[in-house]
Computed example of a mutant assay.
Amino acid sequence: MTTVARSPNMSAHEVRQRLQRARNSRRAQLRAVEDTAPLVDKDLTTARKVAIHYALSEITAAERRLANGAYGTCQACRAGIAIERLEVLPYARYCVSCQERLT
Rank of each mutant, 00 (worst) to 15 (best):
G72F: 02
R93L: 07
K49Q: 08
A70K: 12
R16W: 01
R18G: 00
Q29S: 13
D35M: 13
T36C: 13
T60M: 06
C98E: 12
L102M: 12
T45I: 05
D41Q: 08
A37V: 02
Y91G: 00
E84L: 09
T73L: 14
S57F: 05
R64M: 09
A22W: 02
A82W: 03
L89Y: 01
E58T: 04
A82F: 00
D43V: 06
K42D: 13
R26H: 09
L66N: 06
K42Q: 06
A51Q: 12
R27K: 03
C98I: 06
E100C: 07
S97A: 15
E87L: 09
C74R: 06
P90N: 09
I52A: 01
T60N: 13
A92G: 08
V33P: 02
A32V: 02
L86N: 02
S57W: 11
Q17W: 03
A47E: 15
L86Q: 04
L30A: 14
C95M: 09
A76V: 10
R101N: 09
R23V: 00
P90W: 00
R27N: 10
I81R: 00
M1L: 05
A92I: 09
R85T: 11
N68S: 08
R16K: 13
N9H: 11
E14Q: 01
P90S: 08
A55P: 05
R21A: 07
A28N: 14
E100L: 12
A5L: 12
A79W: 09
L19P: 01
C74W: 04
A28H: 07
T45A: 01
R65T: 08
Y71T: 05
V88M: 14
C77M: 15
R85I: 06
E58W: 00
S25C: 12
L39T: 07
Y91I: 00
A62K: 00
D43T: 10
T46M: 09
Y91N: 01
T60H: 07
A92C: 11
M10H: 04
L39E: 03
R16N: 10
Q20R: 07
Y91C: 00
M10V: 14
S25T: 11
L30P: 10
E14R: 02
R16S: 02
Q99V: 01
A5K: 14
H53P: 11
R23N: 03
L39R: 07
R78E: 15
L19E: 00
A79L: 07
V40M: 07
G69T: 14
P90H: 15
R6V: 08
E87Q: 08
E84K: 10
